[in-house]
Design a protein around this nucleic acid. Structure first.
Lengths: 151, 151
DNA sequence: ATTAAGGTGGACAAAAATGTCCGATTGAAA
DNA sequence: TTTCAATCGGACATTTTTGTCCACCTTAAT
């Protein structure tokens, strides 16, 4: 239901959120989150242009969150790379009808609105603390030690 | 958030639901719902294989719903052409961890589940009757007369 | 039987999403 | 000041999605 790009962007900011006041190189993030390095580079550029992260260029540079994790929502991240579009009018191309949607598109838009809200009110900080002793990117019941040392 | 294919499939069955015991030619449905004829033909084939609609071949043939509108849900239609996939496990490719999802994917899967449920419990019949004097595919406050004669 | 209306399915084209590569530029550290 | 690790951004390749075309089969009506 969500594009790869969205998934990547969310993984990346989740990784950044764990240590958000220092820059992290794309390559580190990519290793940590198991995604294609060069594609992530593009995604990070989008996040940067949207103001979700800051880029620090030059040696020892990288990306860091532009704001504290509790100020950034999942929706901001998603909209930065692949905006959720509400259905404003019946997409049948008929001119001149009002703001009403037909029953079908009313349902679709309701679903979209609910999804939007779910992400609007979830901050990155909640990914860090939500279910107790669980890391933001991976469960720990089978401790994947190597994932916790990377960053 | 939803693919064109899903949108097309839903429009098509919404159109069929209005008069569901007779077959309707692909071309009629395509005109009625303003979508590419030949692409709709493919979508209808998917719906047919999935058992959502029946095909009647030969002259005066077409497609009709396989069941009464109150027996068919939006989810059935969606899953027939572009299945909604829940997140079963953390997609980082790590072996051997349990059924827990990390906080991020827990949120994503929650959103997917809610969407799934919204569509699981909405039948095609509800598109016909839901908001009173509104046609399933288009609002009527500016009566689009030509749309009501087509089928 | 012939014809016309209709679905079937394969092949193909176009567009969008995803993924890869690399030279240019930046800035901190040696 | 030179070097090196990093982002920047353009070009390109691949894959998936979307859209088009057409020859063929099926069926009802004439």
């Amino acid at each position: 239901m969500f594009s790869h790009t969205v998934e990547y962007a969310l993984r990346a900011v989740a990784a950044l959120a764990e240590d958000w006041e220092r820059p992290h190189a794309v390559q580190k993030i990519a290793d940590r989150t198991k995604m294609p390095n060069d594609y992530l580079a593009k995604v990070m550029q989008s996040l940067c242009r949207a103001g979700v992260v800051n880029a620090i260029r030059g040696r020892h540079g990288g990306y860091q969150l532009a704001q504290a994790p509790d100020k950034l929502t999942l929706l901001m991240v998603i909209n930065a790379v692949d905006p959720i579009k509400r259905i404003e009018r019946c997409p049948l191309g008929l001119p001149g009808h009002g703001p009403n949607l037909c029953p079908l598109h009313r349902r679709l838009d309701d679903a979209i609105r609910e999804t939007e809200n779910a992400f609007r009110y979830t901050t990155l900080a909640e990914l860090l603390t939500s279910t107790g002793p669980v890391r933001p990117l991976c469960p720990v019941d089978q401790p994947p030690a190597f994932i916790n040392v990377a960053l």
